[in-house]
Structures are given as C-alpha cells and as structure tokens.
Write a protein that binds this DNA or RNA. Structure first.
Lengths: 233, 233
DNA sequence: CTGAAACCTAACGAATTGTAACAAGCGCCT
DNA sequence: AGGCGCTTGTTACAATTCGTTAGGTTTCAG
C-alpha cells in the first residue's frame, strides 16, 4: 500500500511549503495547488486521500468546493481557515468537512489530525470477504450477490473485480484510467469499451434502472462513482 | 435506527449539563458522568458511539482512558481539555482520540464535530443530497428533480452542477466568472455561451416561464441570482 | 428612439456512454 | 473430438451529453 496522498490548496506559497514539508516528513505524498482551478483539474487524474483546503480566499465558493469534494471524491476534507467564528466552523463541518483548523496552526497538529482521520477511516478489516450495501450482500469468497430477500445470484471474476473496486472506494470518483490500472493488470493495454461493458453487466446484476442508476453513477467525461453505504464485515 | 449514544465525562456539572442539553437538542442520546470510575462501570453495560472526555480529570489519568476507549471500544473519542498546548493536542490525537476540543468551547461546534465524525465513520448522517425549494425537491443522489405532484424528471451532471451551485448560494448574485471557476473543471476553458445554455436547459427543467423566470433571474451585465427558499435535508 | 451589447435558445455535431450481438477462449461432460 | 455453457473482450449502433453556432430577443446608454 502506497503512502496516502494529501493535497494542499492554499494561495500562500509559504504555507503550502510548510505543510508539504511537514507532511512529507511524516511519510505522506503531497501535491500543492495555489488555485482552485488547478486543483480541480488535477482531480480529474488522481483522487487524493486527504484534501487540505484553505477557505480564506474564495470566501463562499470554497464551501461548495468542500461540499463537492466530500460528496464526489469521498476524500477526507480538512478546512484550514483564518475565519475563527464558531458559525464558520459549524457550517464548514456541516457541509461535509471532516475537520476545521484555524490559522495560525502548528504543522505537527495538522499531521496528528490527518493521522487521526486516516486511522479511523481505514479501520476496516482488510481481509474481509463480505460487504453489505443498500440491501445487498456481496460474498467475494463464493462469488455471490445476496438479495434483500436472501436469494443469491453469482457474479463472475471480472464483475467481482469491478464491484470490489467500487466497494473499496465508495462515494469516490473513479476514472476509467484508474479502473484499468487497478483491474487491467492481466489484460494490459485494452483501450476499448471493455470497462463500460463490465459496468453495464454489473449494473444489470444489481438490478439498476438504466435510466436512473442508484448505485453506480456515470459522470460524463470523468468516470464512475459508487454511491452506497458500504459495511465490510 | 436509534439515535447515537454520546457519553459525557467531565467533573464540572455545568459543563455536563450544557453539553447534554445541546446534544439532546441535536437528537442524540446522552449519558453523563462526573468520575472515571462511574463511567467505566457504565461501559460494562452499554457501548457508546461517541465519548466526550475531559482530560483534566481529578481521579485518573485521562490519557490512558482515551487510549483504552479508542482501542477496545472502537468508539469515537473526543477530548475536551483546558490544556491548549500543541503538544497536548498532538499526543492526545496520537493516543487514539478522534478530535481535541479546547475549553472554552461552543456546544454548537461540539455537535458539528460529532456529526462530522459519525458521518464519516458509520454513515449515520451522510452529507445531504436532497434540497427542497419552492415546491421542487432536488435529489442529487439520483439526478432527479421532483415535482410538487411527485413526478420526477432527471437532470444531467452538468445541469446538476449548476443547480447545486444555486442551491448552495441562494439569493446571492453569481457571476459568470464564478460559475466557470466552480464548474469549468470538467471542460477546461470554455468560452462563450456555454453557461447560458446550461442555465437555459435548467430553466426549462424547472418549467420556468422564459419571459418571467421566478427562480433563476438574470441580472443584465452581472450574472444570475437564484431566488427561492432552499432547505437542505 | 437607436444601436450595440448582453442574453436566450433552437439546432447541430463531436465526444462520450450504454448495450445487444457476436466471437474467441476455456473448462467440462459424454 | 465434439458439444455445451460460461466468461469476457470486441464491434456496431443507438442514445445521451454538452459545447458551439447562429439568429432572434431583450436591455440599456445616449
């Protein structure tokens, strides 16, 4: 498992540097951005595990960014802000942020808070072969998908790979590139529509209405996102 | 699903009361304790979802308690402390606490922080994906717009982005620049009328009379403004 | 009132996505 | 071997998305 990736979004270069240094010393990978545009462009390529977002500059727009990050990227979102009002903190947290740190701050505390979030977030049993989500239960050990009523359908290996990728990254945008990177190990450079077909087949197994898929959503031009409350057990 | 149980461990009765009241107003169940012994006795009977722990406890070293709570109970542990040193915070977090709140604090912030933890941890309170406004209900999780009569239309991702931007900033002027900054991430530098077309399409979905739009108003030369009473839920 | 700028939107089309149908590969049984 | 069934990539075509264009309408300064 590679080190968690932390993105830093702040308009002040010194702060970016300070954070990046502290985080890298702590063993994280980092990417820094001075502007929201660049940051969002980068999100098309990679999905960070933790996003540090400075809220001072874009005032209100930053909050919608936070909202979207928490929703679509499923990342841990930590707001860093000079605005110290309680109301700011409350709304920030309610919009989906996982923590709210006030400037000026100590890098050591930022690191500790990130670690605390990651610890809790990753505290899932990694060796588990069973996950439940939205009325379904997936048994990866016997390639079976269990209905709400208890009836089971089997799924194939390829379908299971995709399903597991989704269940491991719920509420996170997954691009086709990332999928092929994760799953295409065997097939190598298949540039075609294979992934779409896999998704399509998985969708029918999950009895998704093609017009309104509830679980596997397509984001035009970007990839897929799995919505659903996953519990590994 | 029952309400999450929050335990409060603090030796000052006023603080216990203040917290309990705020938490119960927010819909949590609470149990308060003045001493670690009582608290630990209660742990034999019930397993709380969240533990608020005052670290300046008289009769026991709080940090070992925190450590044990986090490790053995798997509960969410939030330290409340008068000790404001960075080092205190870092060691507290590193010993397994999920958050560290400094006295004096606002109850509202405590509630918000608890909610943020629960949201991430057990998906008890997921970030809201539904907003209602002026007879409409927008379901962002399934890309659907619900009529007053309950009939639904779907909207695309791009339309949803615009709609969410409006619903996040009601009664606020939004310039084209701001829009492209927020939404342009997908297609890079798009000039011209793209945003107008998005708005136009959204307007037809909202059945706006083109001559007299009620919800999305154009401010000539400045941008758009969304009028409407938004309630996120 | 007049003209230019801003805005609206129907229509077009390139890019993207969904999926049915086909085919190749594999294991298994007779 | 031959046939059957299952898996899975490929192809082809239909559907959708969404920016662009173009022409019409609205707004506003002078």
């Amino acid at each position: 498992m590679t080190a968690p990736l932390v993105t830093i979004l702040d308009d002040e270069p010194e702060i970016r540097l300070m954070l990046a240094e502290a985080l890298e010393d702590a063993g994280f990978r980092t990417m820094s951005f001075g502007r929201a545009r660049e940051f969002e462009a980068a999100l098309q390529k990679t999905t960070p595990d933790v996003c540090l977002v400075d809220l001072s500059l874009p005032d209100r727009d930053g909050l919608t960014l936070v909202h979207r990050l928490a929703l679509e990227q499923g990342a841990i979102v930590i707001i860093i802000s000079g605005r110290a009002q309680v109301q700011d903190r409350v709304t920030g947290l309610e919009l989906g942020a996982d923590d709210y740190i006030i400037k000026p701050f100590e890098p050591a505390e930022v690191v500790a808070r990130i670690r605390a979030r990651l610890r809790k977030d990753r505290a899932v049993a990694p060796t588990s072969n069973t996950a439940s989500f939205n009325g379904w239960v997936a048994h990866f050990d016997r390639y079976a998908l269990e209905d709400e009523s208890g009836t089971e359908t089997t799924f194939s290996h390829a379908e299971g790979e995709v399903l597991r990728l989704f269940l491991d990254n719920p509420k996170r945008l997954i691009s086709r590139n990332q999928m092929q990177e994760q799953l295409g190990g065997a097939a190598g450079e298949s540039f075609d529509r294979a992934m779409d077909v896999r998704i399509s087949r998985l969708r029918t197994k999950l009895q998704e209405d093609p017009k309104n898929p509830q679980l596997i959503k397509t984001i035009y031009g970007a990839g897929y996102i799995f919505l659903g409350e996953v519990i590994w057990s």
